[in-house]
């Protein structure tokens, strides 16, 4: 049994004439934090969308816990325990925070009949605990759509934890969040990894954040995998520096 929970091999995806991903191969190790960096438009979010099934890939294979998932539908992949958050935060705006949490329970463990139960005390307490974990407990009865962008981001993170995923894909978790809150968020991401044992794959532009957290970092540029390795290797890799600073 390999320790690689996600194995991506030779994945290509183009939209019309744009080659968003070309022949990308990378792996995510179980229980670790893996970073994915690259300039804007380098194909990071496309790769995320391919992994969680938002669009079919043109070529290659994506395996999750050894199982091929590139042909599965979005819901099926989510039910396997592979979950993502969005760059433009997505929460259920007209529902309050508690409701957002209650509907984020892990659906993989439920049959259709489980949909017709009221919310038990245990689930409710878990929802409140996680809201407290991200600092939103007091606002739990407010409409989620009325929260600030940063708070919505924290709520989305809490919803993801509520779902008890095996792997969580985070698309720029710190974008748009003020610097003090970022430190708190880094701390919580690390705790989600160490305490809840969730494997993380994180897209991030903030180098301080990603280099500080990740065990391994991959860098994409122009839809291709440029380099992969430990954070300090990547930081000093001349190809990566070129990609970011614009020398081709």
């Amino acid at each position: 049994m390999s320790n690689q929970i996600i194995e991506i091999e030779g994945v290509s995806k183009s939209f019309g004439g744009v080659h968003a991903n070309t022949d990308i191969s990378l792996t995510v190790e179980k229980g670790k934090i893996t970073g994915l960096i690259g300039p804007n438009g380098s194909g990071k979010t496309t790769l995320f969308n391919s992994i969680v099934g938002y669009h079919p890939i043109d070529k290659g294979s994506i395996r999750f816990e050894g199982q091929e998932i590139s042909k599965l539908q979005v819901q099926e992949i989510a039910r396997l325990g592979l979950l993502r958050t969005f760059q433009q935060t997505r929460i259920y705006g007209n529902m309050n925070c508690i409701e957002n949490m209650l509907i984020s329970v892990p659906h993989r463990k439920m049959g259709l009949l489980d949909m017709f139960v009221s919310h038990d005390r245990e689930t409710r307490e878990k929802a409140e605990r996680l809201l407290e974990f991200v600092g939103l407990y007091e606002k739990r009865l407010l409409r989620a759509g009325g929260l600030s962008f940063g708070q919505q981001k924290l709520l989305e993170f809490a919803m993801a934890l509520m779902n008890e995923p095996t792997v969580l894909l985070l698309d720029e978790p710190t974008a748009g969040i003020n610097p003090t809150l970022i430190n708190g968020l880094i701390d919580r991401l690390k705790r989600a990894n160490s305490e809840f044992g969730i494997t993380l794959l994180i897209i991030e532009h903030n180098m301080r954040v990603i280099m500080n957290m990740a065990d391994k970092v991959y860098c994409l540029a122009h839809g291709e995998l440029l380099a992969g390795g430990a954070p300090d290797e990547i930081q000093n890799d001349p190809r990566v520096l070129d990609a970011y600073l614009g020398a081709h």
Binding site: V52, Q75, A78, F86, I91, I103, N163
Partner: peptide, 17 residues
């Protein structure tokens, strides 16, 4: 309600929409 607010998100969370 989740489908009303964001159907893609609901799918992504594993709801059989």
């Amino acid at each position: 309600n989740a489908i009303r607010d964001d159907e893609e998100k609901a799918e992504g969370m594993g709801i059989k929409t």
